[in-house]
């Protein structure tokens, strides 16, 4: 029987090597493409009616739109509208990657630290550049709380700097860890079903609510990932 970590293994489908770089099209890449195609197809089909009074499916697509729009309005402000397509894409990409990963036998792209870290690092670098372009040297005031006595800078600046630099790490590890642990847990408990024979009904019954919980976590983590990106964007735009 497959071990609980086998589901995370990456297998090349089409080997591509450019110079020394191995850019093979793997199962991970295939599921990224599936998330892209799936989400685009889903939203496109949901909105195909363009009805004034929406159908259930259209309401769903509109709801995702409204959720992201509200997230930006509440956390970034009116200036965040320019970043709406990016934030929306981010939310949809992470959401569909997480949810497609819940399909038995599939691959969860967001359970790989390198993927979540690449996303988080890109957001971190982008947000930092936005802050620097907008505020110039004043951007550095982000590392010193407004109104604190000047001599506290010796303590506060390093603390704030470390906390700022750890943002991409915490952002990526949170998503990666949640996805990995959830899938390992499901796999381990599913393994007991076969091992216990007739008593396998017990872990099976436990597996049902656990799967529902994992689907909830998949949605929640996509939401958290996106909302934290919004908060970071807000800091870069408004400096506290």
């Amino acid at each position: 029987m497959a071990g609980p970590l086998e589901q995370f293994e990456i297998k090349p489908i089409i080997a591509i090597e450019i110079g020394a770089l191995d850019l093979s099209f793997t199962n991970s890449a295939a599921f990224m493409v599936a998330a892209v195609g799936g989400s685009a197809l889903f939203l496109g089909l949901c909105m195909s009616g363009r009805a004034l009074v929406p159908t259930r499916w259209q309401s769903l697509a509109e709801m995702i739109y409204e959720v992201v729009a509200n997230m930006i309005r509440d956390n970034v402000g009116s200036e965040g509208r320019a970043y709406f397509p990016f934030i929306f894409t981010l939310f949809v990409f992470v959401l569909f990657s997480n949810l497609i990963g819940m399909v038995p036998g599939s691959f969860t792209t967001t359970s790989h630290l390198i993927v979540t870290f690449a996303l988080a690092a890109a957001i971190f670098v982008g947000v930092t550049l936005i802050g620097i372009f907008r505020h110039g040297l004043k951007f550095l005031s982000l590392f010193f709380p407004h109104g604190a006595p000047w001599w506290t800078a010796f303590i506060l600046v390093p603390v704030e700097l470390v906390s700022y630099l750890s943002r991409p790490v915490s952002l990526s590890v949170r998503l990666f860890a949640n996805m990995t642990v959830g899938h390992v847990l499901l796999k381990v408990i599913a393994g007991f079903i076969a091992l216990l024979g007739i008593f396998g009904a017990l872990p099976f019954l436990f597996l049902i609510p656990l799967t529902a919980l994992e689907i909830g976590i998949a949605v929640l983590q996509a939401y958290i990932f996106t909302i934290l990106s919004c908060v970071y964007l807000h800091d870069a735009l408004h400096l506290h």
Binding site: L21, D22, S24
Partner: peptide
């Protein structure tokens, strides 16, 4: 496969 994952 780090490079491949980042690329895709």
């Amino acid at each position: 496969y780090f490079a491949s994952q980042i690329f895709w």
